[in-house]
Amino acid sequence: MTTMIAAETRATAGASFEVDGLTVRFSGKTAVDNVSFRVAPGEALGIVGESGSGKSTTAMGAVGLLDPEIAAVEARHVRLDMTDLRGPGAPRAGILGRRIGVVFQNPMVALNPVLTIERQLTDHMRQHLHLDARAARARAIRLLGEVGITDAARRLSFYPFQFSGGMLQRITIAMALACDPELLIADEPTTALDATVQAEVVDLILSIRRSRGLSLIWITHDLALLNRVADRVAVMYAGRLVEIGPADVLLDHPAHPYAAGLLASVQSLWTGEGAEFLTIEGAPPPNGPEMPGCAFAPRCPRVFDRCATRPPMASTPADAAHGVACWLFDPKVQA
């Protein structure tokens, strides 16, 4: 029994994914500014930030999903295992959709309303895996079973409007998994769903990640959710990466004043006392990271003169795997 299942769902070990020096500009305006990170094989990295912080643009720019007409993407390199996705002669077509699967926020928008589920599920299988119609159909039925859709053979002929939002998101997850990817990018996959459905979809993605050994990038604005889904957490602010580290360290003791303020304001909703909630005063800079110093300095409660120059990403004193872009943690300043 066990061997049969193992043979059915080929265990694809996750690939490493490395982004170095990614910058994205929209008509000259910087949206993502020199972002670097690495996802180890089988690891789940959560990217958290508020709207406009560049978290989706970072992931989509790295894998080549931004329209080159409007977005100028630069990077020293973006690598999936040993394959460079951006260098000259990079095999871009064929990586996305095959080795990298993407789940988007709103399944109603991600699916084509006038095509059947079967057509949408099997199209890229047939293209990437060169399957014939019957083999693709059999694979689609198995995938729908894997994402918890019962009566899959019959429902393949349905159109998107015949499913609820939670079911549609399961279908887009099946689509992302269709060609056995090594990296799954989930861009706010539960934000458009109701609370109880949200929790089910989170469970589903996590169990698929475990059974397939996938590497995972989970983009969200919801710090509380990262408690459940991430091994490591990257915090973005105004287009820049401001902190990255192990989830249990970062979510307990964030080092960057922005990450600390964000966590405190979320926690004060749940556990605080008294009439006032903790906030971060002010608002993110409207023009993104186009300032010489730290982008958080105008709102920072611990700002000092060095903040007028941009801080580098440095290890925190406690943990070499925990990086923070803040002058407070610069060894020379602390000494």
Binding site: E50, H221, L223, L262, V266, F277, T279
Partner: peptide, 11 residues
Amino acid sequence: LDVSVQAQILN
């Protein structure tokens, strides 16, 4: 609204 702004409006 974003989390940090949400708390400002609730206050």
